[in-house]
Simulated assay, not measured.
Amino acid sequence: MPEMHVQFVNLVSGSHLQVGEGLLSCTPSVQTSQTFALFGRRIMLIDTPGFDDTTKSDTEVLKMIASSLADA
């Protein structure tokens, strides 16, 4: 997730997800924000490694996302 998107997630949710700098990937695994209320509903945002990750193949990233969603 681009740097400013993670900063936004941290701001609205009160989370402390890692924010990367530059072009190197910094999200090693699927991470979830703290839940927060929005219009009377509980919201949780999800940060995932991106496709074209500098350390993982697209297949590995997709498997991580699928596994995390299946566990949820």
Rank of each mutant, 00 (worst) to 15 (best):
L23F: 08
Q7G: 09
T59W: 14
M4Y: 14
T59R: 14
R42D: 15
L45I: 07
Q7N: 07
K56P: 01
F8W: 09
L11M: 10
R42I: 09
V12Q: 02
V19K: 00
S67A: 14
N10P: 07
S25Q: 03
F39C: 05
S15A: 13
D47N: 08
G50F: 11
A70W: 13
Q7A: 13
G14V: 05
L69H: 01
L38P: 03
M4G: 09
L24D: 09
T27V: 11
V12L: 06
M4A: 12
T35F: 06
S68C: 08
G40A: 11
I65D: 03
Q7F: 12
L23D: 10
G20Y: 12
D58Y: 00
E21M: 06
S68Y: 15
S33P: 03
T55V: 05
H16N: 07
P49F: 09
K56M: 12
L38E: 06
D58T: 02
M44G: 12
K63Q: 14
A37W: 08
T54L: 11
S67Y: 14
Q18Y: 13
T48L: 06
D71Q: 11
H5A: 10
V61H: 06
G22R: 05
T48C: 03
V19W: 06
T54F: 14
S57G: 06
V12N: 02
V61G: 02
T59L: 15
L69Q: 05
F8N: 00
T27R: 05
L38K: 10
L11G: 10
A66L: 12
S29D: 11
E3G: 09
V19F: 15
F51G: 02
E60D: 13
T59D: 15
R42F: 07
